[in-house]
Design a protein around this nucleic acid. Structure first.
Length: 556
RNA sequence: GGGGUCGUAGUUCAGAUUGGUUAGAACGCCUGCCUGUCACGCAGGAGGUCGCGAGUUCAACUCUCGUCGGCCCCGCCA
C-alpha cells in the first residue's frame, strides 16, 4: 500500500482502529495485519460513515490517491497515500470493546486474556505472534537443510510421574485406567533413533501439571530434536548453527559462535545460578582467605564466605540491607554484611577493612562490598542479589549473551528424603570416567549434559543418552524409579540401539528473549494464567455427570 | 502449600494516613458543532453495590478480620 498504488481502485478489508469525524469529512484508520491505512469518507455520499464504531470489521472500496505535501504522515508506513472511499460495507459490527484496543494498552492482563481475540488485534501482539512464526519457520528451514526429518509423536501417552506431575486422561474403555498427556517426547524420540531415523525433530507440545510462572506454562512448545551417532560437540554445533540461522533470518544479526562454555561448578560459584545473566559482570568472589583470620564472630567456622563488589553501590539503602539480612538469616546464613568505600570505609564490616584488602578486591571509591557466609546457600542467595542489583542499577548490556553450561552432576541429594534425584533427566549418559562412582558415590557422577542459557534464561537442555540397558537400569535404581514404566525403552535398547543424543530448545522462551519481552504469555496466542486457568475459555470447568460416569470417575 | 502486592465508572488510575456534605480525572461511550485530520478539536451528557462477607462505629470506599480473584516470588518445574 504505497505511493505506486496511487490511482488504483482497491478493496480494503480491515478493522477500524480510529475515527476522526470532522463533520463534513470522516477519516478512519483501517488496520489489517500488515499495516494501517487512512481512508477518507465524505458523509454526504456515504451517510453510514456516521454509524461506524471502533473495531468494526469493514470493507472499503475506493481509489488510492497520493496525499498532498502537508497532509503526508511520515509516522505511518502508508502515510503518503490514503483511500478515497466510494463504498463502505460493514462486514462485522463490533460492540463497544471492553478495553481500548491500542498498541500501548491500558487494560490489565486478566481483562486482556479474557478477550484475547481483541488483545491479539493490537500491533505488538500481532508482531510477537508473527515473529514467533518467523522463528519457527527458520528453525524448520535449518533442520530440514541439515537432513532432519519431522516426525510427530503421541500426545496421549503413558504416565511417567517421576518427573513433573502428569496431566492425566481417564480411559472410558478401561475402567480405572489412565493415559497421560506427554510431558516431553523424550521416550519416543529415543525410540525413533533405535528405529533408524538418525535425525529427527518436532515442534512438540509438552504438558506439565506444575505451577506456572512468568516463564513457565502448563503447556509449552519446544523444538525437540535427536541425532544418532553423535557426541556433545555435534549436538552443540547443530544448536549453535540453528540459533545463528534464526538471528540471521529474523533480524539479520550475526551471532558469534561457538558460544562461551562454563561448567556447572563455575557458574554456581561465579554467578550463584545455573542460568547466569552475562549481560553484566559482577561475579561472586571468594573472600574466605581474606576474612577468616579476622576473628569476626559471624564468619567463624563458616564453610563459605563470599561476596559481591558493586560498582557505584550507593543506591542500596539501609532499609534494603535490613530486608536482605532477614532473608539471609531465614536461609540459615550468617546474614549480610557490607562495607562502602568513600573517603573512608563505612558499614557493618568497616573495621575489618584496610587498604590492602580494598586493593585486592579492587574496591574503589563509591563501590560497595557485600558479603554473606554460611553453607552453599550463599551462592544462590548472592546470585539472586546479583540479579536484583543489576536490575536496580540498570547494568544490563544490550544484545544476547549465550553460553553453554555443561558438566552437570547427574544426581542431587534430596535432603528431606535422603534420596537421590536426577539433576536434569534420568536418560542422560554418565561421563565415562565417572561410571565407577555409580555404586559408591553417585553425587560424584557427572552427566553428558548441556544447557543453553541466554540473558539469564534457560533456553534449551540436552544430553547424550544411554543406549545401554544395564547403565539405564542402574540409573533408575539409584533414583528409585520404577523401571517397568519404561519397559518399552529398555527393551528397545537391546535391539541394536545407536549412540544418540539431542536437545530441546523451548520455543516460547526463545521468542520471549529474542523479542525482549518479560513474560512468556506475550508470545503465546492463548496462554494460561499463573493459576493455570484459561480466562477466555473459563477453564478448568465442571463437566456433566454423564461424562464422569462414562469415565468411571466419582468426585467429592 | 507459603510469602508479597494489587482490587474504586466500560478501562486505567486518584481519593483512604486523619472514618463525616455531591467519590474525581483521563481514555472509551452518547448528543450536538466542525471539510484535512492523523492521540483531531470544541460544547454538553450518561455511567459507581468502592471485589465479596462479617465486625467495630451514630456513621465505613476509608479501620479490623475473613474470603475471592489477578500478578510476582518460594516450594514445585526428570
Amino acid at each position: 500500500m504505497q505511493k505506486d498504488k496511487a490511482g488504483q481502485e482497491i478493496e480494503a478489508f480491515g478493522w477500524i482502529d480510529r475515527i476522526r469525524n470532522l463533520g463534513g469529512l470522516v477519516f478512519v484508520d483501517l488496520r489489517d495485519r500488515t499495516a494501517t491505512l487512512q481512508i477518507v469518507i465524505d458523509p454526504k455520499d456515504i451517510p453510514a460513515a456516521k454509524e461506524l464504531g471502533l473495531q468494526d470489521c469493514i470493507l472499503a472500496l475506493g481509489k488510492v490517491r497520493e496525499r498532498p505535501g502537508a497532509q503526508k504522515n511520515p509516522k505511518m508506513t502508508t502515510g503518503n497515500v490514503e483511500l478515497e472511499v466510494s463504498k463502505i460495507e460493514v462486514l462485522g459490527k463490533s460492540k463497544v470493546p471492553p478495553f481500548v484496543v491500542e498498541s500501548d494498552v491500558k487494560a490489565n492482563e486478566d481483562l486482556r486474556l479474557r478477550y484475547r481475540y481483541l488483545d491479539l488485534r493490537r500491533e505488538p501482539m500481532q508482531q510477537a505472534i508473527i515473529f514467533r512464526h518467523q522463528i519457527i519457520t527458520a528453525m524448520r528451514e535449518y533442520l530440514n537443510k541439515n537432513d532432519f526429518i519431522e516426525i510427530e509423536t503421541p500426545i496421549l501417552t503413558r504416565s511417567m510421574p517421576e518427573g513433573a506431575r502428569d496431566y492425566l486422561v481417564p480411559s472410558r474403555l478401561y475402567k480405572g485406567k489412565f493415559y497421560a498427556l506427554a510431558q516431553s517426547p523424550q521416550m519416543y524420540k529415543q525410540l525413533l533413533m533405535v528405529a533408524g531415523f538418525e535425525r529427527y525433530y518436532q515442534i512438540a507440545r509438552c504438558m506439565r501439571d506444575e505451577d506456572p510462572r512468568h516463564d513457565r506454562q502448563p503447556e509449552h512448545t519446544q523444538i525437540d530434536m535427536e541425532m544418532s551417532f553423535v557426541d556433545e560437540e555435534d549436538v552443540v554445533t547443530i544448536a549453535e548453527g540453528m540459533f545463528a540461522h534464526i538471528l540471521k533470518t529474523v533480524s539479520n544479526q550475526e551471532l558469534n559462535t561457538p558460544f562461551l562454555r562454563l561448567t556447572y561448578k563455575q557458574v554456581i560459584e561465579r554467578y550463584g545460578t545455573d542460568k547466569p545473566d552475562l549481560r553484566f559482570e559482577m561475579e561472586i568472589i571468594d573472600v574466605k582467605e581474606i576474612f577468616k583470620e579476622k576473628n569476626f564472630p559471624p564468619f567463624k567456622d563458616k564453610q563459605e564466605i563470599r561476596g559481591l563488589v558493586i560498582k557505584d553501590g550507593g543506591a542500596i539503602s539501609r532499609k534494603e540491607f535490613d530486608t536482605l539480612n532477614e532473608q539471609a538469616k531465614e536461609l540459615g546464613l550468617a546474614g549480610i554484611f557490607w562495607c562502602k568505600r568513600d573517603e573512608k570505609f563505612s558499614g557493618s564490616i568497616a573495621k575489618l577493612m584496610d587498604e590492602d584488602i580494598a586493593a585486592e578486591l579492587k574496591l574503589e571509591k563509591g563501590d560497595l562490598l557485600v558479603i554473606s557466609a554460611g553453607d552453599d546457600k550463599v551462592f544462590s542467595f548472592l546470585g539472586s542479589l546479583r540479579n536484583d542489583i543489576a536490575t536496580k542499577l540498570k547494568l544490563h548490556k544490550q544484545g544476547f549473551e549465550f553460553l553453554w553450561v555443561y558438566d552437570f552432576p547427574l544426581f542431587e541429594l534430596d535432603k528431606e528424603t535422603e534420596t537421590y534425584a536426577p539433576c536434569h533427566h534420568i536418560f542422560s549418559q554418565p561421563k565415562q570416567e565417572d561410571i565407577k562412582y555409580l555404586d559408591t558415590d553417585p553425587l560424584k557422577v557427572h552427566g553428558r549434559l548441556y544447557d543453553l542459557v541466554c540473558n539469564g534464561n534457560e533456553l534449551a537442555s540436552g544430553s547424550i543418552r544411554n543406549h545401554n540397558r544395564q547403565i539405564q537400569e542402574k540409573l533408575f535404581g539409584i533414583v528409585k524409579m520404577d523401571p517397568t514404566k519404561y519397559t518399552m525403552l529398555l527393551d528397545a535398547l537391546e535391539y541394536g540401539a545407536p549412540p544418540h543424543g539431542g536437545i530441546a530448545p523451548g520455543i516460547d522462551r526463545i521468542v520471549m528473549v529474542l523479542a525482549g519481552l518479560k513474560s512468556i504469555r506475550e508470545v503465546i496466542a492463548f496462554p494460561k494464567t499463573t493459576t493455570a486457568q484459561g480466562l477466555m475459555e473459563n477453564i478448568p470447568d465442571q463437566v456433566t455427570p454423564q461424562q464422569l460416569k462414562d469415565l468411571h470417575i466419582k468426585t467429592d
